[in-house]
């Protein structure tokens, strides 16, 4: 007697549960298609454009961020290290090399919602193209760790997940499709404690 209503309910629950669940999961996981992936670094140069894909449009409508325009720059995120393992605040990483051609760049840590993280008062929480210490060949190395390090130390709080945000300002990278030419800094795990 209750067979038909039960079956209808089962179909509806599956449809709405899976339909809404998969959409939310998809939009939380990625900012759409059209990503540039360079080692651990990911950027979405077309996310703010009118011809962005529907997932990118939905993602930006939910996130509501003021995105960088194509002449302004390009933001790369890294949530994993060079080997593809998720970044852990219990480990020390070394970011090494050079950024692609840009007039300026900034580096900081953010949480999953893209809010800037504050490791604590008086601790180095961000670097930029001017204040980073470089080697004589122009390359640099930034050590990301929860304990103090010599050189460029980017502090993170122990036990708090983070990802790295590298913004290139006024860069030809944002406008060009010649992504193969881009050299991003490497991000290697040094040790864990």
């Amino acid at each position: 007697m209750f067979r038909l209503p039960f079956l209808v309910a089962l179909a509806l629950v599956t449809a709405f549960g899976l339909g809404i669940g998969s959409t939310v999961k998809m939009l939380d996981a990625s900012a759409g298609f059209g990503a540039i992936k360079l080692g651990p670094w990911v950027a979405f140069p077309e996310a703010q454009m009118p011809d962005a894909d529907p997932y990118a449009k939905s993602h930006r409508a939910r996130a509501g961020k003021l995105l960088l325009g194509s002449a302004e720059g390009l933001t790369f995120h890294a949530g994993v290290d060079q080997d593809g393992k998720p970044l852990s605040s219990y480990c020390t990483y070394e970011m090494r090399g050079q950024t692609p051609l840009a007039r300026f760049w900034t580096l900081y840590t953010a949480n999953a919602a893209d809010e800037v993280l504050d490791p604590g008062p008086e601790l180095p929480s961000a670097f930029n193209a001017w204040n980073v210490l470089r080697r004589s060949d122009g390359t640099f190395s930034v050590v990301i760790s929860s304990s103090p390090q010599p050189g460029n130390w980017l502090a993170v709080k122990r036990g708090r997940p983070y990802r790295l945000v590298l913004s290139l300002l006024d860069t030809p990278t944002a406008g060009s499709n010649g992504v193969l030419e881009i050299d991003m800094p490497t991000l290697r795990k040094v040790s864990c404690s």
């Binding site: 629950v13 599956t14 449809a15 809404i20 998809m26 939009l27 449009k57 409508a61 939910r62 996130a63």
Partner: peptide, 25 residues
Amino acid sequence: TGIIGAAVLHIVIILALPTFTGLDA
């Protein structure tokens, strides 16, 4: 049937979402 419905719903939400989130910039 539910899975097919879910696929349709997924597409509808993705296409319609930008107009009604109220969270966009």
